[in-house]
Protein backbone atom coordinates (compact mmCIF):
# COMPACT_ATOMS: atom_id res chain seq x y z
CA UNK A 1 0.00 0.00 0.00
CA UNK A 2 1.46 3.40 -0.89
CA UNK A 3 2.03 5.33 2.29
CA UNK A 4 -0.07 8.24 1.05
CA UNK A 5 -3.15 5.99 1.18
CA UNK A 6 -2.49 4.69 4.69
CA UNK A 7 -4.28 7.44 6.55
CA UNK A 8 -6.06 7.79 9.88
CA UNK A 9 -8.44 10.43 11.10
CA UNK A 10 -9.41 12.23 14.25
CA UNK A 11 -12.10 14.87 14.70
CA UNK A 12 -12.89 14.80 10.99
CA UNK A 13 -9.30 15.53 9.93
CA UNK A 14 -7.39 12.98 7.89
CA UNK A 15 -3.73 12.47 8.73
CA UNK A 16 -0.91 10.74 6.91
CA UNK A 17 1.78 11.06 9.59
CA UNK A 18 1.42 8.72 12.53
CA UNK A 19 3.92 10.59 14.64
CA UNK A 20 2.65 13.34 16.94
CA UNK A 21 5.27 15.50 18.63
CA UNK A 22 5.48 17.90 21.54
CA UNK A 23 7.03 21.34 21.62
CA UNK A 24 8.44 21.34 25.17
CA UNK A 25 12.01 21.09 26.49
CA UNK A 26 13.85 22.21 23.34
CA UNK A 27 17.07 24.15 23.92
CA UNK A 28 15.87 26.89 21.57
CA UNK A 29 13.12 27.66 19.07
CA UNK A 30 15.24 27.21 15.90
CA UNK A 31 16.18 23.65 16.98
CA UNK A 32 12.53 22.92 17.75
CA UNK A 33 11.45 24.23 14.36
CA UNK A 34 13.96 22.02 12.52
CA UNK A 35 13.04 18.96 14.60
CA UNK A 36 9.31 19.47 14.04
CA UNK A 37 9.91 19.71 10.30
CA UNK A 38 12.15 16.61 10.31
CA UNK A 39 9.56 14.59 12.23
CA UNK A 40 6.99 15.02 9.46
CA UNK A 41 4.33 15.36 12.17
CA UNK A 42 1.00 16.95 11.31
CA UNK A 43 -0.20 17.36 14.89
CA UNK A 44 1.91 19.09 17.55
CA UNK A 45 1.09 19.48 21.21
CA UNK A 46 1.30 22.80 23.04
CA UNK A 47 0.65 23.79 26.66
CA UNK A 48 -1.48 26.64 28.02
CA UNK A 49 0.20 28.85 30.63
CA UNK A 50 -0.14 32.25 32.24
CA UNK A 51 1.42 34.94 30.09
CA UNK A 52 4.52 36.40 31.72
CA UNK A 53 3.39 40.02 32.01
CA UNK A 54 6.89 41.18 32.93
CA UNK A 55 8.29 40.18 29.51
CA UNK A 56 6.73 42.43 26.92
CA UNK A 57 6.96 41.27 23.32
CA UNK A 58 8.46 37.90 24.25
CA UNK A 59 8.89 35.55 21.31
CA UNK A 60 5.81 33.55 20.56
CA UNK A 61 6.10 29.79 20.30
CA UNK A 62 3.59 29.83 17.46
CA UNK A 63 5.93 31.74 15.15
CA UNK A 64 8.31 28.77 15.30
CA UNK A 65 5.84 26.02 14.51
CA UNK A 66 6.07 25.16 10.80
CA UNK A 67 3.07 26.24 8.73
CA UNK A 68 0.46 23.58 8.11
CA UNK A 69 0.95 21.82 11.44
CA UNK A 70 -2.19 21.52 13.51
CA UNK A 71 -2.09 22.42 17.19
CA UNK A 72 -3.17 19.98 19.87
CA UNK A 73 -3.44 21.95 23.13
CA UNK A 74 -2.88 19.90 26.28
CA UNK A 75 -4.02 20.24 29.87
CA UNK A 76 -0.64 19.19 31.28
CA UNK A 77 -0.05 19.69 35.00
CA UNK A 78 -3.76 19.89 35.79
CA UNK A 79 -4.48 17.89 38.93
CA UNK A 80 -8.27 18.13 38.98
CA UNK A 81 -11.00 17.66 36.41
CA UNK A 82 -12.05 21.31 36.92
CA UNK A 83 -8.57 22.68 36.22
CA UNK A 84 -8.32 20.51 33.12
CA UNK A 85 -11.72 21.66 31.87
CA UNK A 86 -10.84 25.34 32.35
CA UNK A 87 -7.49 24.84 30.63
CA UNK A 88 -9.12 23.02 27.71
CA UNK A 89 -11.58 25.90 27.25
CA UNK A 90 -8.72 28.42 27.24
CA UNK A 91 -6.81 26.26 24.78
CA UNK A 92 -9.79 26.20 22.46
CA UNK A 93 -10.07 29.99 22.67
CA UNK A 94 -6.35 30.30 21.84
CA UNK A 95 -6.21 27.73 19.11
CA UNK A 96 -9.67 28.05 17.58
CA UNK A 97 -9.88 24.27 17.32
CA UNK A 98 -11.82 21.55 19.12
CA UNK A 99 -8.92 19.17 19.73
CA UNK A 100 -7.62 18.68 23.25
CA UNK A 101 -5.05 16.32 24.68
CA UNK A 102 -6.68 15.81 28.06
CA UNK A 103 -4.44 15.23 31.04
CA UNK A 104 -5.62 14.99 34.62
CA UNK A 105 -2.60 14.09 36.70
CA UNK A 106 -2.88 12.13 39.92
CA UNK A 107 0.68 11.97 41.21
CA UNK A 108 3.57 14.44 40.97
CA UNK A 109 6.40 11.91 41.03
CA UNK A 110 5.15 9.58 38.30
CA UNK A 111 2.73 11.97 36.57
CA UNK A 112 0.38 9.01 36.30
CA UNK A 113 -3.16 10.02 35.31
CA UNK A 114 -6.00 10.38 37.79
CA UNK A 115 -8.34 8.16 35.82
CA UNK A 116 -11.43 9.12 37.81
CA UNK A 117 -10.86 12.83 37.11
CA UNK A 118 -10.00 12.01 33.51
CA UNK A 119 -13.32 10.29 32.86
CA UNK A 120 -15.21 13.12 34.61
CA UNK A 121 -13.47 15.83 32.60
CA UNK A 122 -13.94 13.85 29.37
CA UNK A 123 -17.71 13.73 29.84
CA UNK A 124 -17.93 17.50 30.33
CA UNK A 125 -15.65 18.38 27.41
CA UNK A 126 -17.30 15.95 24.99
CA UNK A 127 -20.66 17.62 25.79
CA UNK A 128 -19.06 20.98 24.99
CA UNK A 129 -18.07 19.74 21.55
CA UNK A 130 -14.41 19.01 22.14
CA UNK A 131 -12.59 16.24 20.31
CA UNK A 132 -11.04 14.67 23.40
CA UNK A 133 -7.79 12.68 23.26
CA UNK A 134 -7.17 11.53 26.83
CA UNK A 135 -3.72 10.64 28.12
CA UNK A 136 -4.42 7.57 30.21
CA UNK A 137 -2.95 4.61 32.03
CA UNK A 138 -2.32 1.40 30.12
CA UNK A 139 -5.54 0.05 31.62
CA UNK A 140 -8.16 -1.48 29.32
CA UNK A 141 -11.02 -0.85 31.78
CA UNK A 142 -10.28 2.87 31.92
CA UNK A 143 -9.85 2.96 28.14
CA UNK A 144 -13.36 1.54 27.76
CA UNK A 145 -14.78 4.12 30.18
CA UNK A 146 -13.13 6.89 28.17
CA UNK A 147 -14.55 5.52 24.94
CA UNK A 148 -18.00 5.32 26.54
CA UNK A 149 -17.58 8.93 27.70
CA UNK A 150 -17.32 9.92 24.03
CA UNK A 151 -13.56 10.41 23.66
CA UNK A 152 -12.38 10.41 20.04
CA UNK A 153 -9.33 8.27 20.87
CA UNK A 154 -7.49 6.86 23.86
CA UNK A 155 -3.82 7.49 24.50
CA UNK A 156 -2.35 4.97 26.94
CA UNK A 157 1.14 5.63 28.23
CA UNK A 158 4.04 3.41 27.25
CA UNK A 159 5.85 4.48 30.44
CA UNK A 160 5.86 7.61 32.63
CA UNK A 161 6.13 10.97 30.83
CA UNK A 162 9.74 11.83 29.99
CA UNK A 163 11.06 8.55 31.43
CA UNK A 164 12.29 7.04 28.17
CA UNK A 165 11.52 3.58 29.57
CA UNK A 166 9.79 2.44 26.39
CA UNK A 167 6.64 0.33 26.12
CA UNK A 168 6.50 -1.29 29.57
CA UNK A 169 3.34 -3.27 29.08
CA UNK A 170 2.86 -4.17 25.43
CA UNK A 171 0.26 -6.78 26.37
CA UNK A 172 -2.01 -4.21 27.99
CA UNK A 173 -1.65 -1.95 24.96
CA UNK A 174 -2.79 -4.88 22.80
CA UNK A 175 -5.71 -5.62 25.11
CA UNK A 176 -6.73 -1.95 24.96
CA UNK A 177 -6.74 -2.20 21.16
CA UNK A 178 -9.01 -5.23 21.40
CA UNK A 179 -11.27 -3.47 23.90
CA UNK A 180 -12.02 -0.14 22.22
CA UNK A 181 -13.07 0.82 18.72
CA UNK A 182 -11.66 4.37 18.83
CA UNK A 183 -8.06 4.90 17.69
CA UNK A 184 -5.38 3.96 20.23
CA UNK A 185 -2.33 6.23 20.30
CA UNK A 186 0.65 5.43 22.48
CA UNK A 187 1.59 8.57 24.38
CA UNK A 188 4.64 8.99 26.61
CA UNK A 189 7.52 6.74 27.56
CA UNK A 190 9.25 6.45 24.20
CA UNK A 191 13.03 6.71 24.62
CA UNK A 192 14.41 5.77 21.24
CA UNK A 193 13.39 4.71 17.76
CA UNK A 194 12.84 1.03 18.54
CA UNK A 195 10.25 1.99 21.19
CA UNK A 196 8.29 3.93 18.60
CA UNK A 197 8.56 1.06 16.13
CA UNK A 198 7.33 -1.39 18.78
CA UNK A 199 4.28 0.76 19.55
CA UNK A 200 3.39 0.78 15.88
CA UNK A 201 4.07 -2.96 15.48
CA UNK A 202 1.57 -3.59 18.27
CA UNK A 203 -1.02 -1.86 16.10
CA UNK A 204 -1.17 1.62 17.60
CA UNK A 205 -2.73 4.14 15.24
CA UNK A 206 -0.03 6.66 16.10
CA UNK A 207 2.64 7.56 18.65
CA UNK A 208 3.02 10.83 20.57
CA UNK A 209 6.36 11.86 22.03
CA UNK A 210 8.28 14.92 23.16
CA UNK A 211 11.28 14.33 25.44
CA UNK A 212 12.82 11.54 23.34
CA UNK A 213 13.33 14.04 20.53
CA UNK A 214 13.75 17.33 22.41
CA UNK A 215 16.38 16.02 24.83
CA UNK A 216 18.32 13.83 22.40
CA UNK A 217 21.87 15.05 21.77
CA UNK A 218 20.83 15.76 18.18
CA UNK A 219 17.09 16.49 18.26
CA UNK A 220 16.75 16.98 14.50
CA UNK A 221 18.41 13.64 13.72
CA UNK A 222 16.29 11.91 16.38
CA UNK A 223 13.14 13.44 14.91
CA UNK A 224 14.10 11.90 11.58
CA UNK A 225 14.82 8.56 13.27
CA UNK A 226 11.40 8.64 14.92
CA UNK A 227 9.69 9.43 11.63
CA UNK A 228 11.42 6.43 10.06
CA UNK A 229 10.71 4.17 13.05
CA UNK A 230 7.01 5.00 13.10
CA UNK A 231 6.81 4.39 9.38
CA UNK A 232 8.76 1.10 9.64
CA UNK A 233 6.71 -0.11 12.60
CA UNK A 234 3.49 0.68 10.80
CA UNK A 235 4.60 -1.19 7.67
CA UNK A 236 5.64 -4.21 9.76
CA UNK A 237 2.25 -4.22 11.47
CA UNK A 238 0.46 -4.13 8.11
CA UNK A 239 2.78 -6.77 6.65
CA UNK A 240 2.08 -9.16 9.55
CA UNK A 241 4.97 -10.53 11.53
CA UNK A 242 5.79 -14.25 11.66
CA UNK A 243 4.85 -16.15 14.79
CA UNK A 244 7.64 -16.67 17.34
CA UNK A 245 8.99 -20.21 17.53
CA UNK A 246 11.19 -21.78 20.18
CA UNK A 247 13.36 -23.72 17.73
CA UNK A 248 14.98 -22.98 14.38
CA UNK A 249 13.19 -23.18 11.05
CA UNK A 250 15.89 -23.34 8.38
CA UNK A 251 15.90 -20.74 5.65
CA UNK A 252 18.08 -22.82 3.32
CA UNK A 253 17.13 -26.30 2.04
CA UNK A 254 18.22 -29.08 4.41
CA UNK A 255 18.58 -31.51 1.44
CA UNK A 256 21.01 -31.64 -1.50
CA UNK A 257 24.04 -30.96 0.64
CA UNK A 258 27.42 -32.01 -0.78
CA UNK A 259 29.13 -35.06 0.67
CA UNK A 260 25.89 -36.77 1.68
Amino acid sequence: MPQSQDTWSIGGHVHTSRLLVGTGKYRDFPTMQKALAASGAELVTVAVRRLDLSKKGAESLLEWIPKGMKLLPNTAACFTADEAIRTARLGRELGMGELVKLEVIGDRRTLFPDVEGLVQASKVLVKEGFTVLPYTNDDPVTAKKLEDAGCAAVMPLGAPIGSGLGIRNPYNIRIIMETVKVPVLVDAGVGTASDAALAMELGAVAVLMNTAIAEAKEPVLMAEAMRDAVSAGRKAFLAGRIPMKLHAAASSPMTGLIGT
Binding site: G22, T23, K25, V46, A47, V48, L53, S60, L90, L94
Partner: peptide, 28 residues
Protein backbone atom coordinates in the same frame (compact mmCIF):
# COMPACT_ATOMS: atom_id res chain seq x y z
CA UNK B 1 -15.10 31.72 32.71
CA UNK B 2 -13.52 32.28 29.30
CA UNK B 3 -14.21 35.70 27.78
CA UNK B 4 -14.28 35.22 24.02
CA UNK B 5 -12.55 37.79 21.83
CA UNK B 6 -15.83 39.21 20.52
CA UNK B 7 -16.72 40.24 24.09
CA UNK B 8 -13.42 41.97 25.00
CA UNK B 9 -14.80 45.45 24.25
CA UNK B 10 -17.98 44.95 26.28
CA UNK B 11 -16.76 42.97 29.27
CA UNK B 12 -16.01 45.49 32.03
CA UNK B 13 -14.01 44.27 35.00
CA UNK B 14 -15.13 44.84 38.57
CA UNK B 15 -13.08 45.26 41.76
CA UNK B 16 -11.64 41.97 42.99
CA UNK B 17 -12.23 40.13 39.71
CA UNK B 18 -9.88 37.24 39.08
CA UNK B 19 -8.34 37.53 35.61
CA UNK B 20 -6.17 34.96 33.88
CA UNK B 21 -4.32 35.84 30.68
CA UNK B 22 -2.78 32.80 29.02
CA UNK B 23 -0.81 31.89 25.91
CA UNK B 24 0.57 28.78 24.30
CA UNK B 25 3.98 27.59 25.45
CA UNK B 26 6.00 24.52 24.55
CA UNK B 27 4.58 21.29 25.96
CA UNK B 28 4.15 17.60 25.33
Amino acid sequence: SVVTKDRYEKHALGPGDSVEIVAFVGGG
